[in-house]
């Protein structure tokens, strides 16, 4: 049987250009994304496992997956899974984002 399933993230062996040598700093918001995921996945909560997080960004579709940065993919995947599990709603997160953004602008 010829394999017909291949995730767009499954890129081992694909052609690609030179390895970009950028050494990017690890920013606070990125650490916060990891910290929140770790806590949500810990033994007291078990709300999002690493495997579910990966399924999350493997389900974005190739365009979203290819255009988002690494930590942005992770926070978006977390949001998708939390909505799927009915921990939060899309409306809730969108409203809260607007609230937080308004505070940034007023600073």
């Amino acid at each position: 049987m010829v394999e017909t399933t291949r995730g767009y993230h499954d890129i081992g062996g694909n052609p690609a250009g030179p390895v970009p040598k950028d050494e990017l700093p690890w920013l606070h918001w990125e650490k916060q994304v990891e910290a929140v995921r770790n806590l949500l996945g810990d033994g007291t909560r078990r709300i999002i496992s690493l495997d579910e997080l990966r399924r999350g960004f493997e389900s974005f579709g190739i365009e979203k997956y290819s255009s988002l940065s690494f930590y942005r993919r992770r926070v978006e995947a977390m949001i998708d899974i939390l909505i799927e599990k009915e921990v939060i709603t899309r409306a809730e997160i969108e409203a809260e984002i607007e609230t937080v953004r308004a505070r940034w602008k007023n600073v």
């Binding site: 918001w29 990125e30 916060q32 929140v36 930590y71 984002i97």
Partner: peptide, 15 residues
């Protein structure tokens, strides 16, 4: 990066 900070802050607030 600002957008990323906004999104994770918003998510954390809700949680």
């Amino acid at each position: 990066n600002i957008e990323g900070q906004i999104i994770i802050d918003a998510l954390q607030n809700i949680l």
